[in-house]
Simulated assay, not measured.
Amino acid sequence: MTSTVVAAERMPTTRRYLMCPPRFFAVEYSINPWMDPSRPMDRDLAEQQWTKLHDTYVDLGHKVETIEPQPGLPDMVFAANSATVVDGRVLGANFRAPQRAAEADHYRRWFIENGYHNVVMPTRINEAEGDFAWTGKFLLAGTGFRTDPGAHAEAQEVLGVPVVSLQLVDPRYYHLDTALFVLNEDEPNIAYYPAAFSKGSQKVLSRLFPQAVIATAEDADCFGLNAVSDGRNVILPTEATALAKQLESRGYEPIFVEISELKKSGGGPKCCTMEIRG
């Protein structure tokens, strides 16, 4: 018997995001398959694309705060990699690549200066929302290329939420947020690209989310899964057209943004967007 997913009326919820302007953005080294320092990059265009993403959130009624970028940290624009926040508890980051290590303390100080006293810095390699996705009930946690498996247990202890570990197997999708995103948290559902995960993790996701949106290889390749949803509006790259059609059929409202320059460093809308919950 074939199941049919009926489009529901989706209700957005107001979100609070932290972003970092790409003032010093550049591709100066290679720490993922998308990065090629010899490839031309237009920083002015990157700033325009980031500004459009920022303004899209504001236009949707979300609160967007910014952290001051720092020279010598070209990837600091990817705010999602620097903390995971659930119910006001903040778990910072501990980057695998030495080129990004200093970013973690700048974000830690931002939280302290903005009134967050329950801030814990991890002892294990942990690249925050790059590999952690809060579903509203439990935390999906990726490993395989960046975040250590031991960081999953640490996140459970610090954040006080159940954690489901997932194994990434394709180096192009080196972070969980390149292969999966949460569509809504009221009745948790996701969109994901199965081939980015091990066979066992595919079975886990299928069991947990039988109504998930399954992305095509083309959607995954254009960073379509590095998307941000507020429960109705879904911000995703302009090339993710097949994914957008699936989302529309489920009652979501796709909103396209250009990420051509950000993608040259292996990032997209979600990479630039840390969500602050509580």
Rank of each mutant, 00 (worst) to 15 (best):
M1D: 15
S3F: 08
S3E: 11
T4A: 13
V5I: 11
A8E: 13
R10C: 11
R16Y: 13
Y17S: 12
Y17G: 11
M19G: 09
P22K: 07
F24I: 09
S30M: 13
I31F: 14
N32R: 10
P33A: 15
W34N: 09
W34L: 15
S38W: 08
R39T: 15
R39D: 14
M41A: 08
M41L: 12
D42N: 13
L45M: 06
Q48E: 10
Q48V: 04
T51R: 06
T51C: 03
L53R: 06
L53F: 04
T56M: 02
T56W: 00
D59E: 06
L60N: 01
H62P: 07
V64Y: 14
P74M: 11
M76W: 12
M76K: 12
N81T: 00
R89E: 02
R89N: 03
V90Q: 03
V90I: 04
G92V: 01
A93M: 00
N94F: 00
F95N: 01
P98Y: 14
Q99C: 03
A102Q: 13
A104H: 07
D105T: 15
H106T: 11
R108I: 10
W110F: 15
N118K: 09
N118L: 03
V119C: 12
V120P: 06
M121E: 14
T123E: 05
T123A: 11
N126D: 03
N126V: 02
G130P: 02
T135K: 12
F138W: 02
L139W: 01
A141E: 00
R146I: 00
T147C: 00
A151E: 00
A155R: 04
E157H: 04
V158R: 02
L159G: 03
G160P: 06
V161I: 08
V161T: 01
L166H: 07
V169L: 10
P171W: 10
R172I: 10
H175F: 10
D177V: 01
L180C: 13
F181A: 03
F181V: 05
V182C: 06
L183Q: 15
E185N: 11
D186R: 14
I190W: 02
Y193T: 13
Y193Q: 08
S201K: 09
S201P: 05
Q202P: 04
Q202C: 06
L205A: 04
F209Q: 08
A212M: 09
I214R: 06
E218N: 10
A220K: 08
L225E: 02
D230A: 11
D230M: 03
G231N: 09
R232K: 12
R232T: 08
V234Q: 06
I235N: 03
P237E: 02
P237Q: 00
E239S: 05
T241N: 09
L247D: 01
S249D: 01
G251W: 03
G251N: 05
F256D: 00
V257Y: 05
V257G: 02
I259F: 04
S260M: 03
K263G: 08
G268I: 10
P269I: 04
K270R: 12
K270D: 01
C271R: 07
C271Q: 02
C271S: 00
C272L: 11
T273N: 07
T273W: 05
T273E: 04
M274D: 04
G278R: 11
